[in-house]
Amino acid sequence: MSNSQTPSSGRPLLEVKGLKKHFPIHGGILGGKTGNVYAVDGVSFSINRGETLSLVGESGCGKSTVGKAVLRLYPITDGEVLLDGRRVDNLPAGELRPLRKRMQVVFQDPFSSLNPRQKLRDIIAEPIVNFGMASGSELDDRVGDLLDKVRLPREAMYRYPHEFSGGQRQRIAIARALAPGSDLIICDEAVSALDVSVKAQIVNLLSDLQDELGLALLFISHDLAIVEHLTHRVAVMYLGKIVELADRKTLFSTPHHPYTRALLSAVPVPDPTVKRQRIILRGDVPSPINPPSGCRFHTRCPFVFDRCKVDEPQLRDVGMGRMSACHLDVVPDTVPEANRQAAVAA
């Protein structure tokens, strides 16, 4: 289904290098540019075939912007996006279009991500028709197969989105994303708006589909517990930068960056017998219009020292294949270690 040429082994499916996306702010009487929102400010990662990479962080950290920039929903400010080693960020629209069938997206809100005036058949068939992959009764068969894959009845193709619940609509969106035989699906908070029991259905569906079809997933989420369940690797973002990037087990068992630790310790544990100590971060996330100097996390970091305020730490290998953007090689364990023990016990 995917492109004819098989990629050379070892080359990642998607590579993002130094991605920047700044949104200009216009103001004043003449509507001139008065500043920038530094939404994404130098982000690099890669995703292999069949792999899930999660981008986690709090609202405003730029994780959704990364997803949309990779999809080329808007032009990027700087950096490179490579699909199978081929640069796609600077392709003209005509050359980009055939590559779009390899990357699809599932958005957060299952109510606004489906056109209310289209039947399911037309929604799901849209990418197939766009790329001229099938027509007529073959198209109906394709749509039917996709509905089977997402565990919806085939008859559903003649109905409208408003007849379905949030979870079912998210299945429809997944079917559309699978339709052109994509290699990579970007899930932008794809399960965040769903109820707990439905969320579990969709999370399980996504991992099943990944195993079955060898999909790569870029899973953008703020929900660490969900991420831990379905990811292979995790990138933690804070104010437009990746602060830590590691495989699942390493990141969740021994988080390195102080922000990752705070984030993990802040998640409420559904077990009343566990009483744990947590790192409560002071204050709020600073504005991405005017990010702090030096390390962007220094205004809230419990381990801050003088160098953090002037010298920006780069993402570097701190051992065990883990990348972290912190000046400390070993982050003091006094409080955090206790936190971790408690969380592990959960």
Partner: peptide, 10 residues
Amino acid sequence: PYVEAAIAAG
């Protein structure tokens, strides 16, 4: 989002 999804769908 459904318009963005359509753009992404080519």
